[in-house]
Design a protein around this nucleic acid. Sequence first.
DNA 1: TCTATATATGAACAATTATTCATATGTTGA
DNA 2: TCAACATATGAATAATTGTTCATATATAGA
Lengths: 119, 119
Amino acid sequence: MAIEEIERCEDFCIHEERIKKVNEKLPDENELYDIAELFKVFGDSTRIRILYVLFESELCVCDLAQTLNMNQSAISHQLKILKQAKLVTGRREGKSVFYSLADDHVRTIIDQGREHIEE
Amino acid sequence: MAIEEIERCEDFCIHEERIKKVNEKLPDENELYDIAELFKVFGDSTRIRILYVLFESELCVCDLAQTLNMNQSAISHQLKILKQAKLVTGRREGKSVFYSLADDHVRTIIDQGREHIEE
DNA sequence: TCTATATATGAACAATTATTCATATGTTGA
DNA sequence: TCAACATATGAATAATTGTTCATATATAGA
């Protein structure tokens, strides 16, 4: 049982002051949840591919589908998720909708991730 | 069928040169996959909480479990994932294992994520 | 070596999620 | 208004993943 474990542990291992200090500085639950939700959006290779493509050029859904060799529906679903996370924006031009990056955090975040992997 | 859609689309919408240009600059599949895998690690609120806690202080597994109010097994499983992604490192001291952040990319990435959300 | 404690890990289950298919909505030109 | 095309979206399915439980491994002290 989780509670027992914690109580048992407390007698031998827990560093009380350290835990208190840490808990004070911890962002609130909602913020932590939102941050995780944001990174979840980056945590899919289709979406990463879409973002990388948009680093180079604004593109319509059809172009994206062709470039990434996926069907239109799959791309649209992923674009919706990216749009909800405010990572991309869409601009309609006639029948087409052109997508582009919403802001520079996207680049920074992905660049940092890439750096981490390559180190 | 995906191919038909693409072919049909090609006649009316595709921007050929743009797609070629984009494809040249795209990192290879493995790298894109690895980047997504890394962000997947950030995409869970338990792991984000662990990382935030470690921003403040090195802690043993038991402290982490207590701080985050979760059982030891769940924390160990998540620490394993964080360790595999080289986001944290463990250092044994007697019966305890103390975990801390592996490098500064972790902070930068999470800070950027937080900024994006708060804008 | 035996016991107690801390951590790690495999298997199972529940929950989440990416893709596909079918279809709806929005836009243009006739 | 109708036909053709581009995009969006709901439902279903398959795959992935976080947590729990049970148990294994590692360490320290008697």
